[in-house]
């Protein structure tokens, strides 16, 4: 209910913002900002893919891998959760070239943000897998399934449903953190806003429109994850019975 209200508010304010902007002669801002928004969306999507992969691998490695891998997963999780996203971004951007690794800023951005959110996601994966009732594992043993088979066919599909809402929050955090990439010269939405602000000084209008665009993208993520959750729960037919 709250979410639906939020979407309505977002859409209304977005259109209102657009209307105000065009009527007041801010039309020239819109194309540039929308181009920036496209870059923001690209980084969010690619970062989400990286994050989900890192989180799944690290979360499962922390639970089930032999000790060297488990240790590696713990170091990754603690390192990326314990330091700032911006520090990680700058480190990859400024320090990696010193090791002879030069990546395009876009690659650095996607890798850094994906790794950062992935570290938080690893705990989401771990928590959801640990929350699957022990009886499910016992049933797979009684049916003589291997651990890998059990995990892939029985445990993960059930954990998946519980993961969706926290992942929704993480994707919003990811979207918000994409603004940081403007600080390593990528012309995303935040970068465009800064640039226009410096040339036109129409600060209030520009930043208001930008905030509303971010809110609109965030609302789309929220609604999308809601729909995904409903579908996933539907596939399990509401609850696990007795």
């Amino acid at each position: 209910m709250v979410m639906r209200k939020l979407v309505v508010v977002a859409v209304v304010s977005f259109s209102a913002g657009l209307a105000v902007a065009s009527f007041a002669g801010f039309r020239e801002f819109i194309p540039g900002l929308l181009e920036g928004a496209l870059v923001t969306i690209q980084i969010t999507l690619a970062g989400a893919v990286v994050a989900v992969i890192c989180a799944t691998v690290a979360g499962l490695a922390k639970m089930y891998a032999p000790w060297p891998l488990r240790w590696l997963a713990v170091v990754y999780i603690e390192l990326f959760r314990g330091t700032s996203a911006l520090v990680q971004l700058f480190w990859l951007f400024f320090v990696l070239p010193l090791f002879g690794v030069t990546l395009a800023p876009m690659t650095v951005a996607i890798a850094a943000l994906g790794l950062n959110i992935g570290a938080y996601g690893a705990e989401v994966v771990r928590g959801a897998v640990a929350a699957v009732p022990r009886g499910q594992w016992e049933a797979t043993t009684a049916l003589n399934m291997s651990r890998t088979q059990a995990l892939r066919r029985i445990i993960l599909p059930q954990a998946f449903v519980a993961m969706i809402p926290p992942w929704g929050n993480l994707f919003i955090e990811l979207l918000k953190s994409t603004a940081l990439v403007s600080l390593i010269t990528i012309s995303d939405l935040a970068f465009r806003a800064q640039q226009m602000n410096q040339t036109t000084f129409r600060t209030l209008e520009i930043f208001t429109i930008v905030l509303v665009i971010y809110l609109a993208i965030a609302s789309i993520i929220t609604v999308g994850m809601r729909a995904l959750e409903q579908k996933a729960v539907g596939a399990m037919v509401r609850g696990r019975g007795h």
Binding site: V9, K176, A179, S182, A190, L204, L211
Partner: peptide
């Protein structure tokens, strides 16, 4: 208030920092 809270939560801190820093002088 609920809308404002959701709004602030769903948008980047960096933009909010810019907003406060650049808009208030206006």
């Amino acid at each position: 208030v609920a809308t404002l809270v959701e709004f602030i939560r769903s948008t980047p801190l960096l933009i909010q920092i810019f907003f406060l820093y650049f808009v208030f002088p206006e």
